[in-house]
Design a protein around this nucleic acid. Structure first.
Lengths: 222, 222
DNA sequence: CGAAAACGATAGTATTACTATTATATTTGC
DNA sequence: GCAAATATAATAGTAATACTATCGTTTTCG
């Protein structure tokens, strides 16, 4: 369903919009497979070129470098999250339930979505967990920010912060709280897999969602 | 004062212990200056060699690569934090006040310390904020973990978690809470400088400490 | 004082991250 | 339907990076 909807991504992140050609779509699709498999450090445009059956030079016509490509994927993920949050809270009147739903969407494990056929959301979620911090933890962050690379992220934080304020208009740190939840959920998923002593994993239960829902609920109480 | 105390760092992270020679100390000291200035991506052993007035080959006799060097610095920082927490809570009887103090130490801006003369703690804190995620967000993390690279980090989380449990023995997610605070504080400091819309900055007040103290206090309440 | 370790100097290699050029194929606009 | 523009493939090449290797000299330490 909804096969022909696509997410609009900031045009400064690519040189040529990848969704406008077969090759571009293939570059994005294969880059997800390769980043998932190799991690950002071992991922190169040479390997990507081989994977899509093209050449390095052709990849460079779409993306300036691998950092921009990672930014593109992360921006797509945020835009997708923004869309899912907007859909997920439609018709929910109670701000408390709406907030709970937002936190759930922000922190839950991603399942195959299938709405956007060209993108594997499960692998992309894995990439976001493992690599997305690298999108902003660098020297170009201010320039990228000026180009609007983080607008979807900011929109999400703003949107959910507003629900927090609906519940408690005096709460002083709504943006800190929500950005902490978003980053925190990704980190906890990483820790659960690689550094379990830094977390609290329980068999058969998604503690990440419960933890952050409880944390938010209690923190914003009067 | 206490000029001759040094922090013991896991010996698998270096090839030759840098504190055992002038050159080694100089490598560590200058690497902090350079990482602070250039960021991890633009930092190279060639540049470091020039800065210490030595050669690339000599640097490689101390550290296998720049990732291990960053790990060394981060491990030093965690060991230092562990030490400061241990000192900071001595003689505090009340677990509530002890916890508050722990959160303060974990989240406050770092001031010049001067106890460890060879290391600039302010610059190191900046490096930890900007680069330390890269220490574990990579493919070697499991191997590094097996070597014990994260033991100080785990100790801190365990130590503060125990205080949480002293206050509320039924709280289910003490480790998640504390690791979220540690990572979260670093991220919020980064956001405050580069992506302020993701945070809540107030003139003349350190909102990061207040926010996390309030968050922890409320979250662990019955 | 002799052996071992540390260091500096130099050289060299494979890979990466690009840039440039040209020939061919495809699309588009008139 | 054809010229012009555009997209791609193929190839080549460069500068920087991340190392590894060798060797002679100095320093240290037992």
């Amino acid at each position: 369903m909804l096969e022909n909807i696509t997410l609009q991504i900031n045009e400064h992140v690519y040189l040529k919009d990848p969704v406008t050609s077969e090759l571009g779509i293939s570059i994005v699709g294969k880059s997800i497979d390769l980043l998932y498999e190799l991690g950002f450090e071992d991922f190169t445009f040479k390997k990507l070129a081989v994977a899509v059956g093209s050449t390095e030079a052709s990849i460079y016509r779409y993306f300036e470098n691998k950092h921009k490509l990672l930014s593109y994927l992360t921006m797509w993920y945020w835009a997708w999250l923004e869309y899912r949050i907007a859909m997920g809270v439609i018709n929910i009147e109670s701000p408390t339930i709406r907030l709970k739903k937002c936190i759930q969407i922000l922190t839950e494990r991603v399942e195959e979505d299938g709405v956007f056929s060209q993108i594997n959301e499960v692998k992309l979620n894995h990439i976001v967990i493992h690599e997305s911090s690298k999108v902003y933890l660098n020297k170009q962050v201010d320039e990228d920010n000026q180009c609007g690379f983080f607008s979807s992220y900011k929109n999400i934080v703003k949107r959910v912060s507003d629900v927090v304020l609906e519940i408690n208009k005096d709460f002083q740190y709504p943006h800190m709280l929500i950005s902490t939840v978003i980053e925190g959920a990704n980190h906890q998923r990483f820790f659960a897999k690689h550094l379990p002593r830094l977390t609290d994993v329980v068999e058969g239960k998604d503690t990440v969602v419960s933890f952050f829902q409880e944390l938010v609920e209690k923190t914003i109480k009067h």
